[in-house]
Amino acid sequence: MIRQGLTDGWRTARSFWALAVVLYMGNLSISAGIAWAVAWLLDAASGSSLAVGVLTEGYNYTVISDLRQEGFDYGRTAMGAFLVAAPLSVLLNTLLSGGIIATVLRQASGLKVWNFVAAAVAYAGRFLRLLLLGLLLLLGVAGGVALLLVVLVPAAGWGPVTEKGVVAIAAAGAFMVLFGGTVVWTAVEYARLWVVRDSISSARRALLKGLRLVGTHPLATMTLQLTSVALVAGSVMIQLLLGAPLRMESVGGILAVAALHQGAVLARSFVRLWLIGSQSSVLNAVSPAGDGTG
C-alpha cells in the first residue's frame, strides 16, 4: 500500500502539474505583496540616505537600529508581516485544497478553471471547519504534552533540573507536539479527501473518520506524511545551502536569490500534490468509494 501510494503520488504530481503551479502562484502572490509593502515602507523611511546601501550586503545592526528613528522598525515590521501573511496563507491553501482535491479525485483531464473554482467554493465551508477543528485538536495535543511534562518531571524526581535537563525536556516536548500535530493533520487531510470523495457534509464526522484511519493504518498513513515532511525539510536545506553564497547587491543578484527561492517553493508545491495523490491512493485501498464505510 505504501509503495502504491508513493507511485500514485508521483503520477498525480506529474499529471496535475498545473495544480502545483496554482498552489505556487497563490503563495507567490502573498510573498510579493509582503515584499512590495516592506520595500515601500523602507524606501519611504530612508530612500535618500546613503547609509542604507550596506543593507544590500545583509543585515547591518547599526543601520537597522537607526532606521527606527526614521519610523521603520524591522522587528515589528517582520512580525506584522508574519501575522498578516501566515493566516492569509493558511486560509488560501485551505481554500485551494478544495479545488485541488476535487480535480485529482475526479481524475479530470486537464485543469478546468471553472470546475476548480466551483469545487473550491463548494468545499470552502467544510474545509474551514476542518481547519478549525484541527487547530483545536492541535492545541489540545500541545496542552496535553505540557501537562504531561509538568506532572512527569517532578514525579520522576528530576527537580531541580539542570540546563541540559531543561533543553532535553523542551526538545522532548517539542518533538511530541510536532509528532502529535502531524498525526492530527494527517487525519485532517484524509478527512478532506473523504469530504470530497464521499460528499460527507459533517466536518466533525469526516475528522473522526480521518482519525480512525490513521489509528488503524498508522504505518501507511504516517510513512507517506513523514516522507512529505522529509522532502520539504530537504528542500529547505538545499535552498539554504545554495543560497548562502548569493548576494543581493544588484537587480541581478536579487533576481537570482528570488529565483532560487521560488524554485524551492514550486518544488514544495509539487510535494504537496504528490502527498494528495498518495493519500488518495491509500484511502481508496483502505476504504473504496461506495463500499458503505464512507
Binding site: Y74, F82, A264
Partner: peptide
C-alpha cells in the same frame, strides 16, 4: 535596491516559514 533587497530577503524568509506552516493546512 537596498529597500528591495531587505524586503525580498524578509519576504523570502517568511515565504519559506509560512509555506512550511501551510503545508499543515
Amino acid at each position: 535596491i537596498p529597500a528591495w533587497s531587505v524586503a525580498t530577503r524578509l519576504a523570502l524568509m517568511l515565504q519559506t516559514v509560512i509555506q512550511l506552516l501551510s503545508l499543515w493546512s
